[in-house]
Nucleic acid binder design. Structure first.
Length: 355
DNA sequence: AAGGCGGGGAC
DNA sequence: GTCCCAGCCTT
């Protein structure tokens, strides 16, 4: 153990831990490969960071692999059809990310010559890139000294300095503390090291302080408050809303679907025509079926929870056995319809109707 | 400054 | 059930 531990020693201690314990990830150039001279692909780093916003590594892994296989370079993605990208993103959530992913790729091709700028101020101007992602791409892809502050880092720093100020009020203090720790040498590896620490050892519920490389300097560990940090201001309860969707199938197997408006919930995604979703205290809005059919109501509802409300969806299923143009949406031929292109709540409705 | 915006895994 | 997650954008 080191005697007379100084603040200046902390980054190096963490980097030594990272050299041994860095997790394998498809988008990561590990410390050994980096030392051997391998450079990270800024396109891959950016892609992974967008997908990782509010999303776990385990969930992102397969999506990242599919996107990189289908669109290996930013030029390929910029040239893609919107519907193909939205369909490939289906199930990952926060669909504004997918719309901004395309906008960003096209901006990089049109205004930056097809290369991501190695500059924080230029990165943060791009669609879908905020303070965290700009710092992550600048440090991880270009090894520039910038400080990432995500949920992991907030937790690690709040514990390291035993900060009890609740989030989000504590953010400026946490950022100042985190920035003071960021080293000039290997800032990209250091950024990933802090986040790995937060994702593995310094976990939310039961941190493994006994094996933490920062065990000795950690103030919360000494005070016994680590599991209670960071403090957060309480969240509002989720209300319940309800609505109706109509699943119409033609005799040739085609399904009636519509593309939702770009703005708002599930924006730009495929979905079943239906009613508005209103608070359960109100009656269901009257909504005409999108087409004439022998409509039947399914016995069970679809239940789904979004960020800020619970949804109860009543499913109507109908066979269309005549020539008629739908009031809304368009029929998608059987061979052209992939249920995996649907956001999860719409796929739940499909599963209930077809099983 | 606050709220909208998905989905899945851990507990 | 609740909480959390490599946050961003709009108002």
């Amino acid at each position: 153990m080191r005697e007379n531990l100084s603040q200046d020693d902390l980054p190096q201690i963490l980097l030594e831990w990272y050299d041994v314990h860095a997790r394998e990830m498809p988008w990561r150039v590990g410390p050994a490969a980096r030392k051997a001279g391998q450079r990270s692909d800024p396109y891959a780093v950016w892609m992974s960071e967008i997908m990782l916003q509010q999303t776990t590594v385990a969930t992102v892994r397969d999506y990242f692999t599919r996107f990189m296989a289908r669109w290996p370079r930013v030029q390929d993605l910029a040239a893609a059809e919107d519907a193909d990208v939205m369909g490939e993103w289906a199930g990952l959530g926060y669909y504004a990310r997918a719309r901004n992913l395309l906008k960003c790729a096209r901006t990089v091709v049109d205004e930056h010559g097809g290369s991501f700028p190695a500059d924080y101020d230029a990165l943060i101007k791009l669609p879908g890139i905020g303070p965290y992602t700009a710092a992550a791409v600048a440090s991880i892809a270009f090894d520039l000294r910038h400080t990432v502050l995500d949920g992991n880092v907030e937790r690690v720093i709040a514990r390291l300095y035993n900060i009890h100020t609740p989030l989000p009020a504590a953010k400026p203090e946490l950022m100042a503390r985190a920035d003071a720790l960021t080293p000039d040498l290997r800032p990209g590896d250091y950024a990933q090291a802090v986040m790995d620490l937060g994702a593995t050892i310094c976990s939310p519920r039961s941190p493994a302080c006994g094996i933490c490389p920062w065990r000795d300097p950690c103030a919360a560990r000494a005070a016994g408050t680590a599991p209670d940090l960071p403090k957060k201001t309480p969240k509002k309860a989720k209300p319940v809303r309800h609505g109706v969707v109509y699943l119409a199938q033609r005799a040739d197997g085609a399904w009636l679907l519509e593309t939702r408006p770009d703005k708002g919930l599930l924006g730009g995604m495929l979905g079943w025509p239906g009613s508005e979703w209103v608070d359960s205290a109100h009656p269901l809005p009257q909504t005409a079926p999108p087409i004439g059919a022998d409509w039947q109501v399914l016995a069970g509802d679809v239940r789904h929870t979004f960020t800020h409300f619970h949804l109860l969806l009543t499913i109507h299923v109908g066979r269309v056995d005549h020539e008629e143009d739908p009031l809304r949406g368009a029929f998608v031929p059987r061979g052209q319809f992939r249920p995996s292109d649907l956001p999860t709540v719409m796929r739940k409705a499909f599963d209930l109707a077809t099983k």
